[in-house]
Structures are given as structure tokens and as C-alpha cells.
Amino acid sequence: MPSHSSPLPAPAAAPLTAPLSHSTVVTTLRTAGCVFAEDEAELLLATARTADELAAMVERRVLGLPLEQVVGWAEFRGRRVTVDPGVFVPRRRTEFLVGRAVGLGRRAAGRTGRPPVVVDLCCGSGAVGAVLADALERVELYAADIEPAAVRCARRNIAPVGGEVFEGDLFDALPMGLRGRIDVLVANVPYVPSEEVGLLPPEAREYEPLVALDGGADGLDVLRRVTAAAPQWLAPGGHLLVETSERQAPQAVEAFTRNGLLPRVAESEELYATVIIGTRPPKER
């Protein structure tokens, strides 16, 4: 699926007539500023069940809704993930974080001889948790988000793979029985500095929840809260993985270190992704 972040000026929608031909859909999308108009047209035509539904979907896209929210799903690491209106759309760069988490989850399973305990914090649609469950096969999975719409959407993605989703503010949402048991904690926290939220594409700033985007003055407010509490929730030798930007990485590493986590930075030039991985030191023998 094309990236949902292609620039759209959100012009006033012209009345659409049904049925729409392929060329008409392409022209309409291109006029609205869709960079991947051909690809998007193919997807809309393949998804719509009726001419009226196609017209409505094209109109919503022209108005600026993210493509994933228009069609109701996003492709994420080979899996089709449900994405409801008003829910953060999973980014392709986050697939890099998932890849690192899968490797750590498998290592934990080999070390302990049991399914790894995995938590998807700030889960949004639940894409990360659902894909991790698929890749790890045997997993004890939990997820949480503060946004009610995200929680409802995440349950539709995570329940089929045997996970549970909770609503609340970060760790406050999780069962207390998870303290000290988590092998892999993935926290896709918001990390856009408040002053830069207005620079995001209209699709993000107008149709995704602000709480999923705004990371405070320097973009690291939520990351600091997560790193401060994570050591109490991680199992000895457990890992916290957080996505951030390349320029924020040094400050993020400081937050990990300050809270007793052993950090390392992983980067993908291809996906333009930066992930900080912090490990809780194992217990002394």
C-alpha cells in the first residue's frame, strides 16, 4: 500500500458520479495531489464493492483522509491490519523495530523455554503486537493505548492472535501481574516535538490523534516516562524497544542509561528508522 503521507492539500470535494472509470479515479486523485494516484486508484477500485461505495471512498480520499483509513486496512510487514478512522496509521519504518523485537523474542524463548511475554505499549491499531504474535507463534501478548478508538481497533487485530488489549495511560493500563515479567516491551511512543506537529502532512495532523504524534517540547516526554518505569516491568535480561529520530537518539540513550537500562542504537538507512534498545541487566548470580 502506498504511504499515507503523500501530500494532500485537502481541496473542496467536487461532486462525484457513479460509476467511476479507472481513468476518472486516477485523474481525480492526481488533481487532489495524491502522489501515487495510479496505485491508489487500483486499490480503491479493488476494495469498493459497489459504485456508490467507490465514489464515497474517492471523495473521502480527496478530502484528505489517509488512504489506510479510507480502505479500512494497512499492509504492515506482510500482514493486513485493520485501521479505523481516527486511529494512528502504522508506518513502514516501524517494521524495522518489529524485526529487532522478533529476534529478541525468539532469543528469550530459547533462554527461558517458555513463550516470551510481549507488551505492545502505545499500540495504536495493534499492528506491532499482531505481527509479533504471527512471527513468534507462541507468545503471551498484551497491548495498551490511552485512546479509546485505538483500543477498539487494536482488539480487532490482537484478539485473533490470542492477545489482550487494555485502555489507559502507559503502564497504568497493564495488569500488575506483569511487573518484572516482560521479556520484550515495544513502545511506539510519539516523538514529534510539539512545535513540529504543524509541519506534518495534513493526513497525519488532521486525521490521526494528537496524542499519538506530539512528544512534547523536544519530542521525548513520553519516552522518558516509559524508560523511567520500564525497569520495574521488565524481566531480568528483558528488553525495551523505542522508535525515535536520528537526531533525538543521543538524548534518548541518556534517558535509557539514567534509568539503569543498557542501551544500544539500531538504524536502518533503507527505512530511515532509528530504534533504541535498552536491556535490563540480568540478576547477579
Score class of each variant (00 low, 15 high):
residue 264 R to H: 11
residue 265 V to L: 14
residue 223 L to M: 15
residue 166 F to E: 11
residue 266 A to S: 12
residue 145 D to E: 12
residue 101 A to Q: 01
residue 186 V to C: 07
residue 113 G to I: 01
residue 133 A to W: 00
residue 92 R to I: 06
residue 48 A to W: 05
residue 127 A to W: 06
residue 136 L to F: 06
residue 224 R to D: 14
residue 268 S to C: 04
residue 3 S to W: 04
residue 138 R to A: 15
residue 25 V to D: 06
residue 17 T to F: 11
residue 61 R to S: 04
residue 212 A to F: 05
residue 221 D to I: 00
residue 115 P to Q: 00
residue 87 V to L: 07
residue 228 A to C: 03
residue 256 F to S: 07
residue 282 P to L: 03
residue 165 V to G: 11
residue 191 Y to D: 03
residue 21 S to K: 04
residue 66 P to I: 04
residue 236 P to Q: 08
residue 63 L to Y: 09
residue 265 V to E: 12
residue 51 A to W: 06
residue 8 L to H: 08
residue 103 G to I: 01
residue 147 E to L: 11
residue 76 F to V: 06
residue 15 P to R: 02
residue 150 A to S: 15
residue 176 M to N: 10
residue 215 G to D: 07
residue 112 T to L: 13
residue 216 G to F: 09
residue 224 R to W: 13
residue 180 G to E: 10
residue 285 R to C: 00
residue 44 L to M: 11
residue 249 A to C: 08
residue 90 P to R: 06
residue 254 E to Q: 13
residue 226 V to E: 07
residue 188 N to T: 13
residue 150 A to P: 06
residue 186 V to M: 01
residue 141 L to E: 08
residue 19 P to K: 00
residue 160 P to T: 02
residue 110 G to L: 10
residue 131 V to E: 06
residue 114 R to V: 11
residue 246 E to K: 09
residue 59 E to T: 15
residue 142 Y to V: 06
residue 174 L to P: 08
residue 113 G to L: 02
residue 135 A to V: 03
residue 125 S to K: 04
residue 63 L to M: 11
residue 124 G to R: 00
residue 152 R to E: 15
residue 185 L to Y: 01
residue 196 E to T: 01
residue 139 V to W: 02
residue 222 V to C: 04
residue 162 G to A: 11
residue 217 A to F: 10
residue 202 P to G: 03
residue 80 R to W: 12
residue 42 E to V: 09
residue 114 R to G: 00
residue 227 T to P: 08
